[in-house]
Amino acid sequence: MAILELQRVTKQFGDQRVLKGLDLTVPTGSIFGFVGENGAGKTTTMKLILGLDTLDSGQITVAGQPVRYGQTVTNQVVGYLPDVPAYYGYMTPTEYLTLCGRLTGMHQPDLAQRITQMLKTVDLPQNRHRIHGFSRGMKQRLGIAQALLNRPQLLICDEPTSALDPNGRSEFLDLLASLRGEMTILFSTHILTDVERISDQVGILHDGVLQVQGDLAALKRQYAQSQVQLKFASPTIAKQAVAAIARPAVQTGVHVTVPFQDDYGTMVEATLRALLAANVVPLAVDRQETSLEDIFREVTACRQQ
């Protein structure tokens, strides 16, 4: 069962159509990477899921319940980490989390225990210091604490890593990955390596619709363009190599790329034999993997033509 489903969702601001019939399915238990360029409509989509903005048409269901603007039934199962979390600077983290907990229907003493536990998880001290003195990273960590406070079934993070330094990013991704199995996670990003690192599901938003979505490994197979890249000492030698190989090959500088459909082993064997026969020796033979970036480029490029 899918914990989150969007069907034919459209949204427009003025005469700019941001979402044009978006279909999105997030399977329960997955870590879903929601990818798109800046301004593609990722934040808008998330605000719609949270009922913070009105749909023009279409339907959104969270855990089987339809989302309605201003109605908060579905929000009790969702935790949300905004891209730039804004707090009340005059509160201490404990006071802020108590406010959040009360609003989600939590009660003392469970709430106090949970707050102590969450502050420990995100490594924030539990003392009288108020939030206005917090650094960016501390605010982000408090953001995680408030999002996870009521043990949500679905965690939604909007560009959670874009404002963090490399160390902070790595720590944050580890934290998200550690939540696998406890909850479903939907996070948006334009940093593709983040998605490859922790996601099992991916959706690429471009031009108002999801161009691709599904299992990351399956997508890689589907979009796989098997090719081998050979490296030579100089462009001249590379040119000789292209002539010697006797199958379609593309030369760029010292590199020669050879696409293939057949078995990798037989193909490389044949190629190397041909090269040796022509007295050309490659410096390196490299089998190229399909990356999410290749898929992203392909799906965004073909729509632009």
């Binding site: 949270l50 009922g51 913070l52 201003g70 908060t72 929000n75 009790q76 969702v78 949300y80 905004p82 730039v84 979390p85 804004a86 707090y87 009340y88 406010l99 959040c100 609003l103 989600t104 229907g105 408030q146 009521n150």
Partner: peptide, 15 residues
């Protein structure tokens, strides 16, 4: 303008 209500409204605070 500072966005402090976003969090609370998503948590179930009626407007």
């Amino acid at each position: 303008s500072s966005g402090t209500l976003v969090n609370l409204v998503t948590k179930g605070l009626p407007r």
